[in-house]
């Protein structure tokens, strides 16, 4: 298909979106990324039955935590994209990039030098 999607999207592979924990999302934002989205399988299509449904709930929880912190919850999103749906993957990458670009950079970026392990 030779589809292209924005180069700023870094793909982190996980065996299933059910593997993704709220802390992973928070740590990513802590490290200075501008946004995080999960590309899970379509609802009802999870190979592990409920992984993507768990991810939906965890992303909702992560959004609540971000609201508490005062960071835009829109920086975190859940998408459902069929494994074979390349065009949709590229479209979502573009959509999310545009959305985050409109929000501006992560407010903790460049201020996080004070972070220590």
């Amino acid at each position: 298909m030779r589809l292209s999607y924005p180069t700023n999207v870094k793909v982190v592979k996980v065996p299933c979106t059910g593997r993704v924990d709220v802390l992973m999302v928070l740590k990513a934002l802590e490290s200075g990324v501008d946004g995080v989205y999960l590309a899970g399988c379509e609802i009802g299509d999870c190979h592990f039955l409920k992984g993507n449904l768990r991810a939906v709930k965890r992303i909702a929880y992560a959004k609540e935590l971000l609201k508490e912190v005062g960071i835009e919850p829109e920086r975190v999103e859940m998408y459902h994209i069929a494994t074979s749906d390349g065009p949709r993957f590229a479209q979502v990458a573009k959509e999310m990039t545009e959305k985050i670009r409109a929000l501006g950079p992560n407010p903790v970026k460049d201020k996080n030098k004070a972070f220590k392990a």
Partner: peptide
């Protein structure tokens, strides 16, 4: 999670926290 929230919040407001 709380540590991450505290760090994010401090960093956002330009403060330091270890």
């Amino acid at each position: 999670v709380l540590a991450s929230e505290l760090k994010l919040s401090r960093a956002k407001n330009g403060g330091e926290i270890e």
